[in-house]
Design a protein around this nucleic acid. Structure first.
Lengths: 336, 336
DNA sequence: TCATATTGATGGACAATGTCAACTACTTTT
DNA sequence: AAAAGTAGTTGACATTGTCCATCAATATGA
């Protein structure tokens, strides 16, 4: 067929790109159709959304945001005002424009519409298997980032304690990621499984903790702080991981910092951690947090020749959160 | 802000999903706007596209594909015919419908439009760095696959052996699902973690196996067959799970059948399994596969009062795949 | 076999959606 | 202070899409 491109990869990328646009146009069309039962047209619904989510916008602002004809918008706004969903206040700075704000009634109408759309989205997400859900959201935010690189602010992470299923997820990601990036074999995944099993069965909430990092409701990283098996005043930091998709958020440092603060708060005198020499990105994080490399040892593990390392951080020095031991800041430790 | 949901993670997934839809709606809008200089309306362009890429479609076919009002389509087609872009041939099978085909002129018009859209796509892709390009296309086709799962096939599953990361996934889903549906506590997840750790470290490929079920590339179920710890001629079936999203595909039976066939093939005489009385759906599957309940025992596990069960299947009877021991078929076992 | 749906396609009427250009009332620039 | 520009509005109008009724052909079934 002559329409279908042939040849090298840009062409087939173009074809894939266009096909996706067709499919997604259709998909959005179906979503929108369902929302049309709400009594508002699509254009109205979008305007309502912008009105509700912005702080006293002007008409211009909304027209630009939605790529909408100002005349058309003007009429929609007039309609909203007439049915008292909207109040306009003429700007004092520029008497030509007016600040727009929803009335109580307008807000409640929006809430209804919003709930409808949310319910719809929820339905779609629930119909997918959990990995499908995670992937969907992941791909979407990746795409979004590629298409609108400026509006990045959406990527804020949240740290939370572990929940049922999280330990399995930890094993899953450690196993998959280290196999993919460093060729570790399945004995590594088995080791992680044992570590988390022990963590769960011997968990001491007062002196141990796991943090899970989420972005957009998806797990993107984790870290553990556990008691040292023999030394009561020493804690072990374990299983630090940050998903490739979440790199660049300083999430690794945030996780380590969280651990160190907790360890200090519950009275540990020292934190040790065990890692591999090839995990260079992690070393920078440990270093910045004040850990020092104290031991190296070559060994053959996880199907690879590796050099394992032990790092330590003394907590007795009176250093506070944010201060460094690596000498890169000029500040001297002060009192506690 | 009152629109932004708070609370558990499905909500923030929903928010991400909706945000993406807004962003992409806008993006497609911009793309479409540019194409409007071609002299054809959006609807016309889409119809033209369908006409060009299908083999002598009927109007119905196109209306369905585009989710379009048949009357509206009818008018567009009439316009096309009038400007001789289109030829209609009344069907001999059904004189109500007509086969549609572009004329030479129609094809050339389409080519122009197509070239325009292709140029546009090319422009967008070229503006991205090469990795961005690859990623974009990758994310798009992944998304597509998730949203429009293989239409003609329906939901077909694939069974495959385990890969790195799969054991973690097993723990994750067992932990999350049993916590959610039956309120099991974290000791259950710990138990599963130990089981899979042992499976990995003592794995005997000749006599043991794990099957992972996939639908659309997403894990949706699993099962394990392992050696009995003491009886060499006995196998243990473990960790059968089917995701809620994949129920109704007879996946559970397929997984058990796979296990039983494998056990028979490598010479086991008996399969036992350990389960809980509350897992009723699974029992039907075991029963259908010929297992019999041989023992029940009340105990307190996983934070619940439970009755655990042992089921057995004898493999010595010469039964073959597909035959039953429950007497529901009239067939008598034949030779093997 | 004959009455009764059902289906594919179309036309009329009409509502909704969107566009263009002109205009008002202001603000900024020079 | 004139000229140019901007936010918002209005009228006229074209486009786009929807609903309903209808027609002819076909399928269904007592």
């Amino acid at each position: 067929m002559s329409i279908v491109d042939s040849g090298p990869s840009l062409n087939s990328s173009v074809a894939a790109f266009r096909r996706f646009n067709r499919v997604y146009t259709r998909f959005i069309g179906v979503l929108d159709e369902e929302l049309l039962n709400s009594g508002y047209s699509l254009a109205e619904a979008r305007v309502l959304y912008e009105l509700a989510t912005r702080h006293t916008p002007t008409a211009k602002e909304i027209a630009v945001a939605l790529g909408m004809d100002p005349a058309y918008l003007s009429r929609i706004l007039a309609r909203f005002e007439k049915s008292s969903l909207l109040k306009r206040t003429t700007s004092k700075k520029d008497a030509r424009s007016a600040y727009l704000a929803l009335t109580q009634k307008g807000k409640s109408r929006f809430e209804k519409l919003n709930a409808l759309s949310e319910e719809q989205a929820r339905g779609i997400l629930r119909a997918l298997p959990p990995t499908g859900q995670t992937n969907l959201i992941g791909y979407m935010s990746d795409l979004e980032r590629l298409l609108a690189p400026n509006a990045q602010e959406g990527a804020r992470y949240v740290l939370r304690p572990h929940r049922p299923g999280d330990m399995g997820w930890v094993v899953h990601r450690e196993g998959a990621l280290y196999a993919q990036e460093y060729g570790f074999d399945e004995t590594f995944e088995a080791l992680v499984a044992r570590i988390v099993a022990d963590f769960l069965t011997e968990f001491d909430p007062k002196r141990e903790r796991c943090w899970i990092a989420e972005v957009n409701g998806q797990n993107v990283g984790h870290i553990f702080l556990v008691k040292h098996p023999t030394e009561p005043s020493t804690a072990k930091l374990r299983l630090l991981l940050v998903e490739p998709s979440a790199r660049g958020l300083r999430l690794g440092s945030a996780l380590v910092e969280e651990c160190v603060n907790f360890a200090r708060a519950v009275g540990y005198k020292k934190i040790t951690l065990w890692t591999q020499s090839i995990l260079v990105a992690a070393h920078r994080i440990y270093q910045k947090a004040g850990f020092r490399l104290v031991e190296e040892q070559a060994n053959c593990k996880f199907g690879k020749d590796l050099v394992s390392q032990t790092w330590e951080l003394e907590l007795t020095s009176g250093l506070r959160k944010g201060e460094r031991q690596d000498g890169r800041t000029g500040r001297t430790p002060t009192n506690v």
